[in-house]
Design a protein around this nucleic acid. Sequence first.
DNA 1: TTGTAGGCGTTATCAG
DNA 2: CTGATAACGCCTACAA
Lengths: 345, 345
Amino acid sequence: MTTARQPRRVTIADVAREAQTSTASVSYALNDRPGVSPATRERVLAAAARLGWSPTSAARVLAGGGSGAIGLVVGRDPRELAIEPFYMQFIAGVESTLAEREMSLVLELAPNADAEVEAIRRWHRSRRVDGVLLTDVIPNDPRIAVAQECGIPAVVIGDPAAAAGLTALWTDDASAMEHAVEHLAALGHRRITRLTAPARFAYTAVRDAAFERAARARGMEPDIVRTDLSLESGAAGARAVLTSTRPPTALVFDNDVMAVAALTATHELGLSVPRDVSIVAWDDSLLCRLVTPPVTALGHDIVALGAHAARRMLAVIDGAEPAAHQEATPTLQIRASTGPPPAEA
Amino acid sequence: MTTARQPRRVTIADVAREAQTSTASVSYALNDRPGVSPATRERVLAAAARLGWSPTSAARVLAGGGSGAIGLVVGRDPRELAIEPFYMQFIAGVESTLAEREMSLVLELAPNADAEVEAIRRWHRSRRVDGVLLTDVIPNDPRIAVAQECGIPAVVIGDPAAAAGLTALWTDDASAMEHAVEHLAALGHRRITRLTAPARFAYTAVRDAAFERAARARGMEPDIVRTDLSLESGAAGARAVLTSTRPPTALVFDNDVMAVAALTATHELGLSVPRDVSIVAWDDSLLCRLVTPPVTALGHDIVALGAHAARRMLAVIDGAEPAAHQEATPTLQIRASTGPPPAEA
DNA sequence: TTGTAGGCGTTATCAG
DNA sequence: CTGATAACGCCTACAA
C-alpha cells in the first residue's frame, strides 16, 4: 500500500488568493462579520467552497477564539461507569445540542478527585475546551473552586447550594422523594427503608432530609442504609434489611441498578415482589422496564437534562450571567414492583 | 460577585526567563529531548513547575505536533445510544488507556452516514484529533474510504475484510456462534431461530453464515429473523416466531437488550424460560445477570476491547504498520435461560 | 550546549 | 471597504 497522499491543507491564504482579496477580508466574510462588501463576500464564500476550506481549530484557539469544545470529567471507575446508564444518556443529550453548533465533547475519566481537578486545570491552561460540565457534585467540591479560580465557564448539574454561584441545573429531588413516600404510604406501607448513594454526594443529603420529613409526617420511623450505588451493595443492603428482625415492607433505592439487583436478591430469599416487599428505584431506565416485575421508579428525562446542560453551557460561554435553573421534577412511574404491604403478622 | 481575575497565561517564554535560558532550551527540556545540559533541564523543569506551566495544545498542534486527542464518531440515535450498554463500556475502556498518556477522547454523535463522514473530514481538516476509531462498520463503509483518503490514522473495530487494509481489531464471531449452536444442540434443541442486527452491519453476515453452517452441520434448518436491535423489535420478533405454527425451542439474539426484552415477552405469552424456550444473548452485560432467569450469553470484555483499540490507535499514530489484530473470542456464559427443549409434542 | 528567528493558520488592529 | 501586519504559543532548523 502506498503512503496516503497528504494534500497540503487549504488555508485562508489560499482562499484569499483564489478570491483575489486579502486574508482579512476572507476571515471577515467567513465569519459573517461586517466590513466586507457583498461582492467580495460572495467571491470568498465561493472560493472557500471550491477549495474545500475548513478552519483549523488550533489556529482559531491561538488567535483568541474559542476551541469549539466543551469538557466533561467523569470521576468514576471505568468498570463502574460501564454499567451506569446515567452517563450515556446524559452524554447523548449533551451531544444532541452540541451537534447543532458543530461543537464537540471532550471526555475524560478521572480515577480520583485530584485527577478531576487536574484535568480541569489542564484543559483550561491548554485551552482545549471552552467550558466544563460538572456532575456528581459534592459539597465544597474542589472542582467548583478550581473552575471559579481559573474563570472557566462551568455548569453544575446539581444543587445550586453546592454550586457556589455558578450556573446550576437542578431537579427538585425533595418533591420527588415526597411523591415516592406518599405512594407507598397510600398503599399502606408503614416501614420503609431508603438505600442511598454515598453520603459524599450533595444530593444524598437532600434526599435523606426529604425522606425523613416525609416519613415522619406520616408517623413512620425513617430507616436509611448507605451503599455505594453498585449492584452488589444494592443486593447486599436489601438482603441485610430484609433478614433483620423487623424487616421493612418497602425499599427505596437511589438508582436503578441497585433496585433491580435487589429484586433478584429478594427472589433468592424466597420473597415475592410486591407481595412481601415493594421496590422503588431512582433513575428510571430501560432496566426498570425490562425486569419482572417491572420496577416503579422516579424517572426524569436524562437525555433532556444533558441537552439542557449543554444549552446552558453555550449560554454561559456567550457571557450569560450565572443562575440556577430548575429541571422538571422526576415523576413516579408506577409499575408492578409496588403494591400493598403484606397483612401485619 | 467580582469577575474572576484572569491571570495571564504562563508561556514557555516566562519559563525561559525564570530559568534564565532560551525558549528553545525550555522546549527541549520540557519534551525530554536531547540538546540540553542536565543542569539547564533541571532549572527549566523547576521553573515550569513553580510557574504552573502547561502546554497550550493549540499552539502545539499549529506547530506540527499532535492534538493529544482521538475521535470517536457514533452513528446512532441519541435515545437509542442511551440504552445500548456497548458504547459506554467501550468508551470506558478507551479512556482508561488514554488517561495514561493524558490524552483525551473527542466524541461526536452523527445522526446519519453523511454526518459521520463529515465529522471525520472536519476533524482532520481542523486537526482536532490525531486519529479516529471506527465502530459499527458496514461493508464498503464510507468512513473507511474517507479515513484513507485524508490519511488520518484509524482503527477499525470489526472484520478486517471490511477494513480495507486499515488496522483492525476483530473477534471471531463465527467461532462464538458455533459455540452457542453447539450448546443448544447438545441440550437437544432442533429448531433454533436467530434474531439479528440489521443486515447492513458487516458482522451480521459473518454471524449469519456461521449460524447457518453450524445449524446445517447438525441437521437443523436455520431460521433467521431481522431486527433493528431495539427492545421493541426483539420482543416483537420473539412473539412472532413463538406464536407461529411450528415455533422454535431456542432463540439466539444479536444483543442483550433484545434477549432480555424477549424474556419478558415470553412470560407474557404464558411460556416459561427455559422450560418452553431457551434464550441466548450476544453481548453479555449486567442486564443478563440481573434478570430472572439470568440469560446465557456470549460475553466478551468490551472494556478491554476499548482499551486495546486505544492502544492500537496510539501505535498507529506513532507510525505502526496497519494490521489485523484478533481479540479474544466471546465465551458462552451459561446461565439459567438455556435448558433442554420441551418434550416433542 | 545554547540562543535566535521563522513558521504554523487565524483573528484583530490599523493604516490606506 | 480593503489590505498589510502583528500577535497568539510552540517547535525546530540553524547559527553562534
